[in-house]
Computed example of a mutant assay.
Amino acid sequence: MRRIGTVLVALALAGTALGTAAATASAAPGGASRAAAACPTGWGSGTKGSPDSGAVPLSNIRTGRHDCFDRIVFDVPGGGDHIGYYVQYVDRLHQVGSGDPIPVSGGAILELRVGAPSYDPETGGVAYPGKVAQPLPGVNISGYRTFRDTRFAGSFEGETQIGLGVRARLPFRVIQLPDRLVVDVAHSWN
């Protein structure tokens, strides 16, 4: 009888220890259970778009890191609630207009076209200082989980084209906000 009682007490203590460890892991920042439960799914990796060429220039491109995704933001002051875009995975980035290839590092390449030129359509002056085939100015993606490279591909007929090198072909979403276009690329498929 004592042996069975000892075994039951040991099992009860082991169960309590496992429960405490699981609760600690899910409460800890970056805990596997917390990240899996909080990360959205179902974005997909197919082409997304809402056509429209812009007359309002692009002013800035910036990036950010989040628990579940890496983010790139296109600032278009005066662009309103609808900024045209076209986002798709490509085997190789080709500059719109010339067709010239632009090398982009990473396991996959996401082509982003935003309906906002990098120049002022009224004056022709530079609004966004990107240089063709060069990394985006002022954007540092070192330490990002998903982003690997950024390349400016130029502006043509009211659109600015960017090549975004990512770790692998991963799901992404596009969000329209007033005067901004946001593209989030998930860290994983779950």
Rank of each mutant, 00 (worst) to 15 (best):
D120Y: 09
V96T: 12
S59D: 07
S118D: 15
G80P: 02
I141D: 05
T16S: 15
G163V: 11
L112W: 01
Q95F: 02
D120R: 02
Y128W: 12
V183Y: 02
R92Y: 03
G158C: 12
V183G: 01
G163K: 02
A168M: 09
G31C: 06
G130H: 11
S50L: 12
R2N: 10
L112M: 15
S45D: 15
L136W: 10
V9C: 03
S142I: 00
G163H: 05
S50V: 08
I72A: 04
R145N: 13
I4D: 11
S98K: 09
R151V: 15
A12W: 09
A25G: 08
V96P: 00
G44S: 10
A38Y: 05
C68R: 08
L110V: 15
A14W: 11
V96Y: 06
A186S: 13
L177T: 05
T41Y: 01
N60A: 15
D52W: 01
A133Y: 03
P117H: 09
G124Y: 09
R145Y: 08
T41M: 05
L170H: 03
Y89H: 05
L112Y: 05
L13D: 03
V90H: 12
A168V: 03
E159T: 13
G124D: 13
G46D: 15
P137Y: 08
P29H: 04
T123E: 07
G80H: 02
L136Q: 04
L170E: 07
G44L: 06
P178A: 12
G19I: 00
R148F: 07
V126F: 00
S33F: 11
A27C: 04
G80L: 09
V90I: 11
D52Q: 07
G44N: 08
V183M: 13
G138S: 04
L136T: 06
A55N: 14
D120F: 06
L8S: 10
P121M: 02
G143Q: 09
G5R: 14
V104Q: 03
F74E: 04
G106V: 08
G42L: 04
T41Q: 12
V174S: 11
G115K: 04
G97R: 09
E111K: 12
P117Q: 08
I4G: 00
S105P: 00
S53Q: 09
D179P: 02
D91E: 15
G15I: 03
P178K: 13
N60P: 02
G79E: 00
S142D: 15
Q134M: 13
V90M: 06
E111Q: 15
P57L: 10
A12F: 10
H187S: 05
C68M: 06
A10R: 06
G163P: 01
T150Q: 01
A38F: 10
T47V: 05
V76M: 01
L18M: 08
L164Y: 05
A10L: 14
L18P: 00
Y86T: 15
S118K: 02
V185G: 01
I175E: 11
L181H: 00
P178N: 14
C68K: 04
T63W: 00
G130L: 01
R169N: 11
P57Q: 10
A186D: 12
T146I: 09
D184T: 05
F147N: 01
A36E: 14
L58Y: 02
